[in-house]
Write a protein that binds this DNA or RNA. Structure first.
Length: 383
DNA sequence: GATCCACGGGAATACACGGATG
DNA sequence: CATCCGTGTATTCCCGTGGATC
């Protein structure tokens, strides 16, 4: 979605909606440009890349911490701040080039959920720093690497942050290390959950630990609630959400988002504590972040939406669900079945044993249920 | 002609269970 | 009684093909 489109949406939302003026403010998959709180952590990150302030590329960095602790929030904020403050790189194409008082280091943020292969990572960087369009097909991965290296020779290099490493369907820290070994001009910041001591491979010397939120989460909910809602969130409700989420900002925001959606759909102008309860109920414990679901391919998301529509009507074996889903889509039931199994393997879906039918022979079938908030997914999909 | 990747399809493997075997 | 075997499903794994693009 480009910026103009986003701005247009906000305008229409402001006028149409009553309770919620800005859904993005409540959306756990979207991070505000400035981190809320966490000044000390931001300092630690700046320390880790300190040479950048003398126009030199820093060493690589590993940023790690538990889910919902704000790793993405702080790293996206860091990269966009560096881009506007230090680089001659234009975040939005404007004025002239060549502001010589600024360094010519490029700052690139990549989400490994989209940049899920060596090819896509090189391509993502090229796409971010090169004004012309970068091919998506027809060019080999090594070819692309050479293009990127050539590009690096024309500037003072790039600092690349790769977020969401080591998820079931993303590259891990070791992959990133290999992608950039003997790659002159690129330093990287890897972001993941795995504690350094559990990693078996070579880890960057610089490490920044992002601990779980404690008291700060109430502030985050309050600030984002104020930005998104026409009437601010009760302090008690913010506290309750933060406690229930156990410091996980993603889960707390997801519950708040759904609570706000329910309230607004009911035509009311204020979130009651029952709405907060309903929001909490709509977010599974130990679920996966909604960003992973949103990053799936079109067909995978289509299959999920169809599956959610089905599950209202009782128990289906995977086989039955697959034929049902396939019958009103372009995909064959074999492919849908494989997709469902694959989604379960990467934790997007949860498999539940089910005794459907009466056959006494053969292996027990199972059904699949979402391992994320279906209510949130549906609403983000329609927005 | 080369490239990446999503699809489709099918082979290989895992599991459940009853019955046979040691 | 424990183990193995056969049969029928469920699940995983793998690879060829073709679309879109350069």
């Amino acid at each position: 979605m480009d910026l103009a489109e986003r701005i247009a949406r906000r305008r229409t939302r402001k006028t149409k909606d009553r309770l919620v003026g800005d859904w993005d403010a409540l959306n756990p998959a979207i991070h505000p440009p400035e981190p809320i709180g966490r000044e000390a952590l931001f300092e630690a990150l700046l320390d880790a890349i300190d040479p950048i302030f003398s126009d030199e590329l820093p060493g690589n960095v590993y940023v790690w911490g538990p889910p919902g602790a704000g790793k993405s929030a702080i790293v996206t904020a860091l990269m966009s701040t560096l881009r506007t403050e230090l680089s001659s790189q234009r975040p939005i194409v404007t004025a002239t080039r060549g502001d010589r008082t600024r360094s010519d280091v490029r700052f690139v943020y990549l989400d490994a959920r989209q940049a899920s292969s060596r090819f896509k990572i090189y391509r993502g960087i090229l796409d971010a720093i090169r004004p012309e369009s970068v091919p998506r097909r027809g060019v080999g991965t090594d070819d692309l690497r050479e293009q990127l290296e050539a590009e690096m020779a024309t500037c003072e290099g790039a600092l690349v942050a790769v977020d969401h490493l080591g998820e079931p369907d993303t590259v891990d820290l070791e992959d990133v290390r290999q992608f950039f070994t003997s790659f002159a001009g690129v330093s990287w910041i890897g972001v993941g959950r795995t504690p350094p001591e559990e990693l078996t491979t070579r880890i960057p010397r610089s490490k920044v630990h992002v601990p779980q939120y404690t008291y700060e989460l109430v502030d985050i909910l309050t600030v984002r609630g104020t930005r998104g809602l026409s009437r601010s969130l009760d302090h008690d409700d913010a506290t309750r959400l933060a406690e229930w989420a156990d410091g996980n900002a993603h889960d707390a925001l997801a519950a708040l988002f759904v609570a706000a959606a329910y309230t607004q759909e009911d035509g009311r102008g204020h979130i009651r504590s029952e709405d907060v309860d309903a929001g909490i109920d709509a977010v599974p414990e130990d679920g996966i972040p909604i960003g992973r679901v949103l990053a799936l391919s079109d067909n995978e998301r289509l299959v999920l939406r169809r599956l959610l529509a089905l599950s209202l009507e009782g128990d289906y074996s995977i086989d039955e669900a697959a034929s049902e889903i396939a019958s009103n889509s372009d995909l064959t039931s074999g492919t849908v079945k494989r997709l469902l199994y694959e989604l379960a393997q990467i934790d997007i879906l949860r498999r539940v044993e089910v005794s459907v039918g009466t056959q006494m022979v053969g292996r027990q079938p199972s059904k699949v249920t979402p391992n994320f908030s279906a209510a949130l997914f549906e609403r983000l999909h329609n927005s």
